[in-house]
């Protein structure tokens, strides 16, 4: 229960940041908070050692899945920040309310 509340509070804070931030880098940082809280809840659920959907999930599987998520999050951050740098070079701004055009 405590774990669920903490992880969901972090997720909600991150979601609020994604919705309200005006700078692209700050939006990406908020996305990292959301991803981190989701990983926290997943690993915490695995650490309870309970049956999930009728099967016993071992600690090795939980940790391996966590490693996969962390690597995917790192790849997402790399691509996202590269896109931010490209956008900043081309349009001289990273404010999302100034980046309104769709045509490239």
């Amino acid at each position: 229960m405590n774990l669920l509340v903490v992880a969901m509070l972090l997720f909600s804070v991150g979601l609020y940041g994604v919705l309200t931030r005006r700078d692209l880098v700050a939006v990406l940082a908020s996305i990292e908070v959301m991803l981190g809280s989701a990983t926290l809840l997943l690993v915490g659920l695995g650490a309870t050692g309970e049956m999930i959907a009728g099967t016993q999930v071992g600690g090795g599987t939980v940790e391996a899945t966590g490693v996969m998520i962390i690597v995917l999050a790192a790849a997402e951050a790399a691509i996202g920040l590269a896109l931010v740098v490209a956008v900043a070079r081309r349009f001289r701004t990273t404010r999302i309310d100034e980046l309104t055009g769709v045509k490239g």
Partner: peptide, 27 residues
């Protein structure tokens, strides 16, 4: 939106998620 999602997920899952004890994973 953020608060609504928080309330929704916590009320939906509060009976299914239990706290793991410290050092629960000995892998």
């Amino acid at each position: 939106v953020a608060g609504g999602l928080f309330i929704m997920v916590v009320t939906a899952l509060k009976d299914f998620v239990h706290d793991p004890v410290a050092g629960a994973m000995v892998t």
